[in-house]
């Protein structure tokens, strides 16, 4: 019974989703199920939030590593949630102000910081140790050069070569990855629907 109900729900939900694709009469059922799926999956954000608060409360309580910064996380979280719930999220509200003036610049800065780390990690990882690694480096270099004005200033064909790399070899490689991954996903989905793959049910004992 402990496994029977969850496996039955998975099977029925999976079959409905497949049927709604082929049988028009089951389409509305499939659409409702998709809405349910979105609603239930959205609740996962609350687990994440609770976990975040739990981790930081634990860190403060036991004076764990960097515990002095944990109140900052809790205050930031609370400020966003309270302003959002009390004043709403429309333009001009405190929530919107906090998002535009604090979250958005910090998010852009965090991701722009990655430019430095990606570049230095790539320098170490992709050293031109063999001709394929060299090919990878050249391809990356040409694509980067093709997207800045200096590329066209060096040689006016560089943006065209960059575009060709993106449209032909890159697309071919991406397609191979996508088709391969799609095959794997279909096989895994079948295993899940028929209850062969059950690892997602673990960890809740």
């Amino acid at each position: 019974m402990r496994l029977f109900v969850p496996l039955t729900i998975t099977f029925v939900a999976g079959i409905i989703m497949i049927l709604q694709f082929f049988v028009p009469a089951t389409q509305s059922m499939g659409e409702s199920l998709q809405e349910w799926y979105m609603i239930v999956a959205s609740f996962a954000i609350f687990i994440g939030a609770a976990n975040l608060l739990q981790v930081h409360a634990h860190r403060i309580r036991f004076k764990g590593r960097n515990w002095k910064y944990s109140p900052v996380t809790i205050v930031g979280f609370t400020a966003m949630v309270l302003t959002g719930l009390i004043f709403g999220i429309e333009k001009g509200t405190p929530f919107n102000f906090l998002f535009l003036e604090m979250v958005a610049p910090m998010s852009a800065t965090m991701f722009s910081l990655l430019a430095f780390f990606v570049a230095s990690a790539a320098f170490r990882a992709f050293r031109a140790s063999n001709w394929r690694a060299t090919l990878l480096l050249i391809s990356a270099f040409v694509v980067m050069l093709g997207r800045v004005p200096i590329g066209a200033m060096i040689w006016d064909r560089i943006p065209l070569i960059s575009e060709w790399i993106m449209q032909v070899p890159n697309l071919a490689g991406q397609r191979a990855v996508m088709i391969g991954a799609a095959m794997g996903m279909v096989a895994t989905s079948l295993r899940m629907i028929f209850g062969i793959e059950r690892s997602y049910l673990g960890g809740a004992d």
């Binding site: 969850p6 729900i9 409905i16 497949i18 049910l201 809740a204």
Partner: peptide, 17 residues
Amino acid sequence: RMSLSLIVGTGAGLTMT
């Protein structure tokens, strides 16, 4: 597990099609 089953089942069905 009930909720996860619904998510996994629907997700698997969507992936299949």
